[in-house]
Design a protein around this nucleic acid. Structure first.
Lengths: 206, 206
DNA sequence: GCTCTTTCGCTACTCGTCGTAGCGTATCTG
DNA sequence: CAGATACGCTACGACGAGTAGCGAAAGAGC
């Protein structure tokens, strides 16, 4: 979790408690003040830590926030509920719940925005936030195949592209609904969206 | 386009040329420096205008950028190409082209992020950027119905929800693909994504 | 023409934040 | 105990947002 190697051998070791306190303080500040309102000085005070201590561990505000938020995304799970529709609905519901929290709401888009300009940050976002989500799609797909709901992969490259599309569709749509359109993600909405993925556009004549 | 009432009658009128120069300078600065690198002072210099002139017209950096970017979204069109699949693909292609430009890439996510905290800005983003996109979906749907590809609306409320889902799905997915995943939107990808919307998930056994 | 009104450019200013430097102290390893 | 590193503290430099006050310019109305 800490950006540098955890064990160094000599000298006074870094306080692990400080790490946790800083990350928790960051989430708190995000929830209360938003991305723009969050300042390093404020986080330091909340964590009961000197501002310089923050900079000894994270090179910038963005990287700190990535780590503060990333742990929340690790909680996402893809349970095997017996059907693809149910599995997708469950994942969407978890993801939506995450995105309604004030701290993620304040941070996620801002991080993505910063990431478009900063390759190093972008890499970190991918590893810590995007990848864990994509794994869920892979898992859900594998489960569906194991249940016999889907064909097994013919070509791994094609399967990867398939997964990419599904992933961008699920994550992008939920984010857009909640953070851009500003509309709630209800159980009913989840059902309709999932149905759209698994079936043709409703109302379509064939 | 200008934030205040365009005609006031008395006194020296506002320079319309300055408006255009400022908006163009803003897009230039966005493309070169990104959202974080853009400063009001720099925009003023590029536009050949005093910084105070910017603040006489726009209350903040965010609102200025909304207007600078919004005009680009007005160029989106939904041509009737004879089939729903073709219409959607064309819109997606236009939208993707817009999102690959450095100025929109730098601004869009940052604006959405700011919008989650600032209701006034959020409203402005909705009016100037989100709504024009949603209109395309409504238009494409109407065209498909006129061609007999889709059932006519039974219930206007249900139709609205339907449009909302489609809109969030298209806009959200393309944005996520380009700005978060960082993968290109090729003609092949567009075809596959559109096919996913209009047909069941490929590989699904029924 | 003249006057009134508003905008414009300019300079200077306040305020807050980022990120860093330097120092004395605290805490670990060997 | 000695060496090495982290810590808290204070102070600082740089920079950008947004504002204030001025004289000059450019229109509108008469």
């Amino acid at each position: 979790m800490a950006p540098t190697t955890p064990v160094r051998g000599k000298g006074r070791p870094r306080s692990a408690a400080a790490d946790l306190a800083i990350l928790e303080a960051t989430r708190q500040a995000l929830a209360e003040l938003g991305w723009g309102g969050l300042t390093m000085g404020d986080v330091a005070v909340r964590a009961g830590v000197a501002k310089t201590t923050l900079y000894r561990r994270w090179p910038s505000k963005s990287e700190l926030v990535v780590d503060a938020i990333a742990s929340l995304f690790d909680q996402l799970e893809c349970a095997d509920l017996g059907s693809l529709q149910a599995d997708i609905e469950a994942v969407v519901a978890q993801f939506a719940e995450l995105l309604t929290r004030p701290e993620t709401q304040a941070a996620l888009l801002a991080l993505f925005a910063e990431g478009t300009r900063d390759p190093q940050l972008r890499l970190r976002i991918r590893e810590r936030i995007v990848q864990p989500q994509k794994v869920l799609v892979q898992l859900g797909r594998a489960n569906a195949q194991a249940r016999g709901e889907m064909d097994p992969d013919r070509d791994p490259a094609t399967a990867d592209e398939e997964i990419d599309i599904i992933f961008d569709t699920i994550a992008g749509t939920v984010e857009h609904r909640l953070l851009v359109s500003g509309e709630p993600v209800t159980a009913e909405w989840i059902r309709r969206f999932t149905t759209l993925l698994l079936n043709p556009l409703p109302g379509l004549l064939r």
